[in-house]
Amino acid sequence: MWLTSKIKQILMVMKPGVVTLDYPNERPPVPENLRGQPVFDHQKCIGCGGCSDHCPARCILVRDVCQELRVMLYDGGRCTYCGRCADICPEKAITMSNSFEIACDQKEDITTRMELFMMTCQRCGRCYEMEKTNAIDRINLKGFRYDNLEQRALIRKTSETFDPALLKESDNYQRPSDK
């Protein structure tokens, strides 16, 4: 029994031969609907912040610098490429491209920053119509939203090696009992 099993195993290995791809010298085609790096179209974006409300990884941040200027910041370092932002966007301003070779040593290389000039409504001071059927209102559920970029500091920092300075900083985190 042992010998027949071994013969079968040799055949099992021989038949497919070498299957390892010679990547990166040989690049197989990327599937059409791969969820790769999201691309933001500033021409189409109306700055509704729906993507920011619905990002599970919370990597799209919105900040109003002043009434006319809204900054949208996409932080690729935290992105999980789920494509939820592209689903949510009412203007189809976000598309999931099929580029996936995006490892880089500068965080800024995968960060997208858009500065949007917002028109204000004369009546209400906001930048879009306020009808109940408005797509923007429907998606504007009470999800997560950063109005303040400084809040990112609350995300716990880590270092490659033990860093006494970072440990010292963590002393300032407040416990609920200290509030």
Partner: peptide
């Protein structure tokens, strides 16, 4: 932190 339809992810 997040809403119902973000939890599946």
């Amino acid at each position: 932190q997040i809403s119902y339809n973000e939890v599946p992810f």
